[in-house]
Nucleic acid binder design. Structure first.
Ligand SMILES: [Mn+2]
Ligand SMILES: [Mn+2]
Ligand SMILES: [Zn+2]
Ligand SMILES: [Zn+2]
Lengths: 143, 143
DNA sequence: CGCCATCATGAAAGTGATATCCATTGACAT
DNA sequence: ATGTCAATGGATATCACTTTCATGATGGCG
């Protein structure tokens, strides 16, 4: 899991002639071992205690790199911050977002995906990607 | 249609003790007679030729008011600008967005909505709202 | 190794869209 | 007509990125 992503990132880096650095290693480790939907600032703050020498710009650029390398995806849940989530090869999911505590849950639903394709076809659209987010109260916050 | 929204807005304004102004009337007219998914700047520019005395801040605040009054809804399609769309009482729809020309089409699909409810329930979520957007090439841009 | 062309870093400055301030103007109840 | 409080709009501030630039690190090649 983590191994696969580290390897994929290493390959991407060498293909592009980019260099391996201490910062990138630290950021990748931290990213892979944290919440699956993290903002730049959250990751930056998480790192800062142990690695006060890593700058915001480096975290920012490294997360962009992860996205280019295909091991992360940029997401917008409407709270004004871009979040980066883990991406696994060939996997897709959508999101449930708690409007009270910010908790994010993932789900997959083949039936919905299929209906989306039908909608697109009936409108003559060629779909490249989609986003489906359900906002409300999570099980905990409902109580 | 337009009448109903003007009336709804007037009621909202008087309930809140807000005042009727020339600018608000102009902006409402312009909003109701334009594209259904308009950014602040687009509306501002559209107005400027005929009403160069209306400021950007007023357009901004008035669109927010429309949203509060329930006759408009803020939307984010990922192009960096907030768009305001017309809202009709008790109506709901989702969007197809062309990634090439920016064209936006609307659709409704009861089956999808129903499946969404099932997903939410199976995760213990209480849904307040959702967003479903399909991004790709519109019929025209496919050719 | 030691060089050195490149890439990477991080503090600071820039950007663009949105949000707010404030002096002035306007609406409307009395 | 007057007083009060909301509205306006130009200017300024904010916020989350995004880029710049001087300095530091990496790694291929003798
Ligand atoms: Mn996710
Ligand atoms: Mn719409
Ligand atoms: Zn919650
Ligand atoms: Zn198109």
């Amino acid at each position: 899991m983590k191994r696969a992503k580290k390897k994929a990132f290493a390959e991407f880096m060498s293909q592009r002639g980019l260099k391996s650095t201490k910062q990138r290693d630290i950021i990748l480790d931290s990213f892979l071992s944290s919440d699956r939907h993290l903002s730049i600032e959250e990751l930056y703050l998480k790192l800062r205690s142990k690695h006060p020498n890593i700058g915001y710009a480096t975290v920012y650029r490294t997360l962009k790199l992860f996205a280019e390398a295909g091991i992360a995806r940029e997401m917008q849940f409407g709270d004004g911050q871009t979040r980066y989530e883990h991406v696994s090869e060939g996997e897709h999911h959508d999101h449930l977002v708690c409007t009270r505590c910010g908790h994010i849950e993932e789900f997959e639903n083949e039936a919905i995906e299929k209906l989306q394709d039908e909608v697109a076809e009936s409108h003559g659209f060629l779909i490249e990607r989609h986003r489906l987010e359900l906002y409300g109260l999570c099980a905990t916050c409902r109580k």
